[in-house]
Amino acid sequence: MDSRRIDTGVGLGLAVLSSVIYFFAGQYTAFGVNTYGPNFFPQLLAVLLFICSGCLVFNALRGNSKAELEGFHKGGLIKVGVTLAIAVLYLFAMQLLGFVISSMMFLYLIMFALGKKQHWRIALISISVTAVVWFIFAYLLMIPMPEGIFSRSY
């Protein structure tokens, strides 16, 4: 992967970010505080970040960023996207269906997406892992797990 293009892009992005931070931090003022108020530290950091990102761009343009970047493995990247989407769905499912059911579904789907095709085996793994995890978290550590619509009070 071309490290010059990446470094230049990242550096420019960070420079913009640091300017935005500098501007916003300027609004944080407080009464009765000395010169070094709540705006001082973020603004100082924003300036440092701006300088560093400038160096990054400069180095990249001069061809000094020699580090070889890891290339993306395309099929893998798609899988990352799919599993991430499943995880986000899982968060919503947990609030609706409660911990146990949604976790079993989550494990099953992720294993399936990663290329495990033996349905019975992965179903069994999903159920047993969920049971063990539930036992440790909810029973031993008494962490209140989301119960969703199966909550006993309703």
């Binding site: 619509i149 199966f150 909550s151 006993r152 009070s153 309703y154």
Partner: peptide
């Protein structure tokens, strides 16, 4: 159904 049952019982 399950949801309704639990509501009504409570």
């Amino acid at each position: 159904c399950v949801a309704l049952l639990t509501i009504s019982s409570s």
